[in-house]
């Protein structure tokens, strides 16, 4: 699967935007300017970006509590996201959702989700809509290794398979379910084998390598789009930051996380590959860095100045009234 110059620039722009967004949030919370339960996606950028690079406006993605990366990869505007995290009325969800519930169906983003595994049946449902309406779209659900021990995972995959739905399930295996190492709670290393129980296609990708994710997700998405049914794609990745902002990370060694950051950073791997192959230049990438940082800074400024919801907003949007 060849990527054009523009597609490569876009991939880097999105990965860099996710990284900058998450690092900025970490700083803002640490500085006491931002509050809430925040779960950051830094380190896993290649997964969201490699998958969403294949998606169109017809397609739906569903996400997790660690959802900022999926939103950015699917095209949700960072200005609205930042305002949402600040609880402002200009946020994507008018400040009512917050980090764990950012959603924007205008971009096919069916929401981050605070309940581990809950997005999996929702993804099957979005795929059912695409199937019945023959929209040509697919539904992609992102979730972590921890979610594969939830009933919703097993029930959702079984339904998607028995109904041959146009769904792709992206399992982001970052080695930890909150603080618990995967091997403490799951009796297997390659979680993709769980697809076999549902006679579902599966694959394993290096989740730090944009190109590997891009290729394998492309195969799965094309299969779903062409009526070939769902796929479980496991992407092996690593969470650079804690489970949440403020996590003391006492469950893993500094050496382990430093090793991943030094040697397996998805942005570095991407840059090395494209510069070596003379597909993009370092200058182009630094130009993107500068524009991304500028846009994030402006998003923070705008969010901090945006109005809060009014007391009347407490009671609206519970039921459809119009």
């Amino acid at each position: 699967m060849e990527l054009s110059h523009d597609q490569l620039l876009d991939a880097y722009w999105r990965m860099r935007m996710i990284r900058a967004f998450e690092e900025k949030l970490n700083d803002l919370v640490t500085a006491g300017r931002l509050t809430g339960f925040l779960h950051l996606y830094a380190g896993e950028e290649a997964v969201a970006t490699g998958v969403c690079a294949h998606l169109t406006d017809l397609d739906i993605v569903n996400s997790t509590h660690r959802g900022h990366g999926h939103c950015i990869a699917k095209g949700v505007e960072v200005e609205g996201m930042m305002a949402e995290l600040y609880g402002r009325s200009t946020g994507t969800c008018k400040g009512k959702g917050g980090s764990m519930h950012i959603a924007d169906l205008d971009y096919g983003m069916l929401g981050a989700n605070g309940i581990v595994g809950a997005g999996i049946p929702l993804t099957a449902g979005a795929a059912l809509t695409a199937s019945i309406k023959k929209s040509g779209g697919v539904a992609v659900g992102f979730f972590g290794d921890g979610a594969t021990n939830q009933g919703q995972f097993h029930e959702g995959l079984n339904i998607a398979s028995v109904w041959n739905l146009p769904a792709v399930f992206i399992l982001e295996n970052n080695g930890y379910g909150e603080a618990s190492p995967t091997e403490f709670v799951t009796p297997m290393t390659d979680l993709a084998v769980r697809a076999k129980s549902y006679a579902m296609e599966s694959d394993v990708a290096d989740g730090m390598d944009f190109f590997d994710v891009y290729e394998k997700a492309g195969t799965a998405i094309e299969r779903a789009r062409n009526g070939g049914g769902p796929t479980l794609l496991e992407c092996k990745t690593y969470r650079f930051m804690g489970h949440y902002v403020g996590d003391p990370m006492t469950y893993r060694t500094k050496e382990e996380s430093e090793d991943w950051k030094q040697n397996r950073d998805p942005l570095d791997l991407f840059e090395n590959r494209v510069v070596e192959a003379q597909l993009l230049t370092s200058d182009e990438l630094r130009g993107i860095d500068a524009r991304v940082d500028q846009r994030i800074a402006a998003a923070v400024d705008a969010a901090e100045q945006a109005p809060f919801p009014t007391p009347a907003d407490l009671l609206t949007d519970v039921y459809v009234t119009e």
């Binding site: 069916l110 099957a124 059912l128 919703q152």
Partner: peptide, 25 residues
Amino acid sequence: ERVRDTPISEMGFLGTAVGAAATGL
């Protein structure tokens, strides 16, 4: 297509129904 027996997976098929409802069915 429109009338479906589900597995005995109440959480799974209700979640599927929610996802379908949120996207146009």
